[in-house]
Computed example of a mutant assay.
Amino acid sequence: MNRRRTIMVLGASAMAVGLLSAAAWLGGLRLNLTPSEPLGLWRIEMPQRAIAAGDLVFICPPQTPPFEEARHRLYLARGLCPGGVAPLIKSVAALAGQHVEIGEDIRIDGRLASSHLHRIDGAGRPLRPFAGGIVPPGYFYLHSPFASSYDSRYFGPIPASGLLGLARPILTVVP
């Protein structure tokens, strides 16, 4: 009798966790467990205006070779975006028409962007930087203040069509 009760309690608990997770997902809540932005609970909000430089966004990365490699290198968490990855949470550093220069540092329209490049990742593998250029229409150039973040410094601008919404912290902590 005890075994049956234990199985029923575990089953009910699993169902409750699943229902709560589904409700949170449908309600736009996301858990960030990467150091690119503060750890914790975030909400995706639909923007009521055009996305601007400086906005913090959730965006699904495209299924391209750089993101396939990033998935294999475990830079990206598993999630429900196309390709089975979690959405990125990054700041929009440049919009369509802006010029990004990649050298010893990164400049956007000639202004220094507080960022620099790494030549290798934490496992000693080479990182290929984005070549630079004009952000095309319908794309965003993304950035994270975390020095080791995998962002547009390496994968370049990504399509705005993957935008899920603005990222708003609910309960977060800086690591």
Rank of each mutant, 00 (worst) to 15 (best):
A70L: 06
Y139P: 02
A96L: 10
F155G: 12
A86D: 00
I106Q: 14
T6L: 11
L19R: 03
I158V: 14
L31G: 05
V57S: 12
G79C: 04
R111V: 04
M46Y: 06
Q48Y: 09
G103R: 08
E69L: 09
V9C: 11
S152F: 01
A53F: 08
L10S: 13
A96M: 05
W42S: 10
I134A: 15
L26T: 09
G97D: 08
T64V: 14
L142H: 08
I106T: 14
R4M: 01
A70P: 05
P38R: 11
V135K: 06
P35M: 06
Y150A: 03
S149M: 03
Y150N: 05
P157D: 10
V135R: 06
Q98W: 11
L10F: 05
T6R: 13
G103K: 09
P38L: 14
I7G: 03
V100G: 08
G133P: 05
R119W: 10
D109V: 10
R49S: 01
E104D: 09
S13N: 09
R119I: 12
R111A: 15
V173G: 12
F140T: 07
F140A: 04
F58Y: 01
G28F: 06
I106F: 11
H99G: 03
I108C: 07
G124L: 02
M8Y: 13
R128F: 01
A14F: 05
P169N: 09
G97M: 07
V174A: 13
I134V: 15
C60T: 01
P159E: 10
R153H: 08
P61L: 11
L166P: 05
D55E: 14
R107S: 01
A160L: 09
Q63N: 13
V135W: 03
I108K: 05
C81L: 12
P159G: 03
G122Y: 08
G124F: 01
V17S: 09
R168T: 11
W42D: 08
S91Y: 15
D151F: 00
L39Q: 10
G18K: 04
G162N: 10
H143C: 01
L31Y: 14
